[in-house]
Amino acid sequence: MDSVTANPATEPEAEAAAEAGTHTRGRRRRRGTAWSGGILLSGVSAVLGFRLADSDGPTPVPQLLAFLPWLLLPTATALLLTVLARWRTGMVWGVAALGLLAWYMEPYGNTDAPKGRAVAELRVMTSNVEYDRETAGLLRAVREERPDLLFVEECDHACSATLREELPRAEYPYRASVDAYGPEGSVLLSKVPLKRAPRIPATLGMPAAVADVKGHPVRVQLAHPMPPMPRQVGLWREELGKIREYAAAGEGRSTIIAGDFNATQDHAAFRAILDAGRLRDAARLDGSSRAPSWPTAVPSPLGAQIDHVLATPDFSARDARFLEIGDTDHRTLVVTLTLHRPEKER
């Protein structure tokens, strides 16, 4: 009877081959995981590079900069992937990217208290009603908050007429506006006297005035530059530049600029406005520098703060709140500003 004898070397060789195959597959998986982490880190690093260079860059950088804090998610994911892949260089890269993001999430600008005594208080409200879609909600907010200065963006003819009818002239006797259809219309209403001033020429209406606040002149300007759409980044940058020029022209005079800036503190063009006019963001002064104002379609922790009230250092700020007023894609910002003056100026 024939018999078959097993080769004693067969089993160890088979085990070694299986082990080598498992090692190869594991190495391939780690390589794929490392590549995935590297791709994520490359994208985040590209955006961070423009932030580091104080530049808004081309599309899609300005759009991504608007949501800079949320780059923490892909960065943390990338770091986890580099750990799983045992890729040390990637781990260092991921930690550095997280550190830079954390650094840039800090509020921009100083919060030094104004010098001198308080001489006047102004309740300021800015609201983008999105083509008159939520003028009724704005009216409810106005009646509850009773602002002294009201900046309304995307207020078309119907919105403007409604404000005239529903807000008594005895309550808001002063007005500066750009009357137009669609998003081009804007209205500035005031309880304090307004003197007409040249407005910033732009695609969307940006009326301006000089307010008399208990005998102190205060430059007031509504801001509403074009958004950074993919084919309009140059126009967006140009119109923010015009607001920067207005801010710089104040040369230390009391100034308030409020509205829908279509920009966050992570945009170089917006920071240039703050620096040029030595302006401070009122929400930042009150500890709400990252509270989102747009879009309302996403939960409150998400989104970006593109609606601002900016003021010169002679103003302090308190009670800043972002209100949901109804069927508009922006939250309404309301804040109390207090004007301070040194003894010799009172």
Rank of each mutant, 00 (worst) to 15 (best):
N110T: 15
G49W: 15
Y246R: 12
G26V: 07
L80S: 15
F315W: 08
E184P: 03
V61M: 09
A211C: 01
E154C: 05
P183N: 07
A258H: 07
G205Y: 00
A176E: 12
R341T: 06
A20Y: 13
S36R: 15
A272I: 08
L235H: 14
L274M: 14
R278K: 12
V233Y: 07
S127V: 11
H330W: 12
G116S: 10
W87F: 15
H216D: 13
A53F: 04
S300P: 01
P230T: 13
L98Y: 14
V178Y: 12
D266V: 07
S289G: 15
G109P: 02
D132Q: 12
L48K: 03
V220C: 13
H340C: 11
G326P: 02
L279S: 08
V220S: 12
K195V: 09
A223M: 05
I325A: 06
T5H: 12
S55W: 14
R341H: 05
A34C: 10
D281T: 00
V119M: 06
L138I: 06
V334F: 04
P217E: 11
T338K: 14
T75Y: 02
G49N: 11
E134F: 07
S160F: 06
N128F: 06
P225S: 10
T312D: 04
G57D: 03
L333N: 04
M226H: 08
G32W: 15
A118N: 07
V4C: 00
R244S: 11
H267F: 07
L41A: 05
G43D: 00
V178F: 11
A180N: 13
P168A: 13
A118D: 08
L68K: 04
A113T: 12
E238N: 09
D329M: 08
R231W: 07
W87G: 06
A268P: 00
H267Q: 11
F151T: 01
D266H: 15
T24C: 04
V298I: 12
P12T: 10
A161V: 07
G250P: 02
S55G: 08
A282N: 09
V213D: 02
T24M: 08
W70Y: 10
H308S: 12
A249E: 10
A76P: 03
R278E: 08
D2F: 10
D266I: 08
